[in-house]
Write a protein that binds this DNA or RNA. Structure first.
Lengths: 246, 246
DNA sequence: AACGTCAATATGTCAGGACAAATGCTTGAC
DNA sequence: GTCAAGCATTTGTCCTGACATATTGACGTT
């Protein structure tokens, strides 16, 4: 049975109050100050003790409910969920993921050029077939062991990859710096055998099982911004995600 | 450029007003009455014309923003996203998924018995190793072609599978009928080669690539309710999901 | 013509109040 | 002793009101 540490608020900060509360609640759960099954103080009381209105505190709790870390039950209260929430599967690229885990990841850019979109790429990116798009192919490694072969397509008017250092920044990071705000992505995950070229690049045997992932991402204007077709060595990579049912 | 059909509200209905609005907005988008890029009327005006307060209408819009169907931009307005949102990856079992697509899916129960939890299952289900748990193995087919080999473990105090008709109801459906409310699930998706027994059951060749998925689901009390270890024929199944970044 | 400023517009945040509905415990009747 | 009714608690829904902040376009100045 844990207890909630004191929550401090900074009303002069540009960070919204509900977000400040949500952050500190999340840290309390992650740090173990609140353990699964613990009940949070009732909304009205907690709001009162923090000098906040109930809607504001409720909004803070909602953030963590959406993340699957808290569960509300009418007439009962709000409890910490027993599941260890893995980092939710966010709209970040592999580069960001790896950087966070501290793994020194290597990137080799195999090709980066403007090509004409074929039918599939044009359809996914919502541009006419034959339109110029960036075509990018990268090989990702950890400790000199390759594990991901990634091909991406981007409309030329979204970003200019000339001179971009894709070994230092992830693709999504580059897009963010370019003012592109990603909001939605459709993914499809499957598996298939490695073909000859793929096997060679990934230091695998031909026919070895690979995890496949295709993804199309859209920005906050609803514009298709990126389409990717990625291959992962099955023995070195799995996709983890947390589902929340509301 | 589409236009928003008239929205009708029923204040005597137990369905919350914000949900009624969200449902009708969603239908308008799915049906194509609103096309990608369309802007919704401003919150205050739309609220006024519906006889609702702004927070209530805002809550309705938030539902669709969370689903990735709408995008809000301060100072601009609310727009319909250009992505075709695939069915969001919900907390449903395969049986529910297939039932929705109208595919006549077959289920063969290979085994269903109470066993002692091994270390891994005990850890995942948060029970001591050696505790009695249901062990269930099913083979799923479409048009007599097998594509999924699914093994599940459930604590015995969660549900009683004796006499349960798992060919008619999906496992998750069965749990819901038993009063279990699933809220959170952790999943891991990968790939590997088929072993001899798996290949035989799935009518595949040994060594064929399979999609693997392990999942642990938790109910609204934070209790681990189900752990599954599933195998899919890679040529007949992919995992689709939509990510939303808020 | 180019640039900066300002106003209109729309969403983001926050407050305070009211009633409804579900849950769980206590109390009372039989 | 058991079961049902009632009550307190807590979240769910909905309202009104206010100010903050980002965006866009019009206007005026340089």
């Amino acid at each position: 049975m844990g207890s909630l540490p004191r929550i401090g608020l900074d009303r002069s900060s540009p960070v919204p109050l509900y977000f400040q509360v949500a952050e500190q609640l999340e840290r309390a759960i992650v740090d173990g100050a609140l353990v699964p099954g613990d009940r949070i103080e009732a909304e009205i009381e907690l709001a009162g003790s923090l000098g906040l209105s109930r809607p504001t505190l409720r909004q803070a709790i909602q953030v963590l409910v959406d993340k699957g870390m808290l569960v509300r039950k009418r007439g009962v209260g709000t409890q910490v969920v027993g599941a260890k929430i893995r980092r939710p599967f966010e709209l970040t690229s592999l580069h960001d993921d790896l950087a966070r885990t501290g793994q020194p990841a290597g990137t080799e850019v195999l090709s980066c050029a403007v090509v004409e979109a074929d039918d599939e790429v044009g359809h996914e990116l919502q541009v006419p077939p034959g339109s110029p798009v960036w075509s990018l192919e990268r090989l990702r490694s950890v400790r000199d062991e390759p594990f991901a072969l990634m091909r991406n397509y981007l409309p030329v008017d979204v970003v200019d990859l000339r001179g971009a250092d894709l070994t230092a920044l992830g693709l999504y990071e580059l897009l963010r710096h370019g003012g592109v705000h990603l909001r939605v992505a459709n993914q499809r995950i499957g598996a298939r055998r490695a073909e000859a070229r793929e096997a060679r690049l990934l230091a695998e045997r031909r026919g070895a099982p690979l995890v496949t992932m295709t993804r199309t991402a859209f920005d906050d204007a609803g514009r298709a911004v990126e389409h990717g077709d990625h291959l992962y060595r099955a023995d070195r990579y799995t996709v983890e995600l947390t589902l929340v049912d509301r």
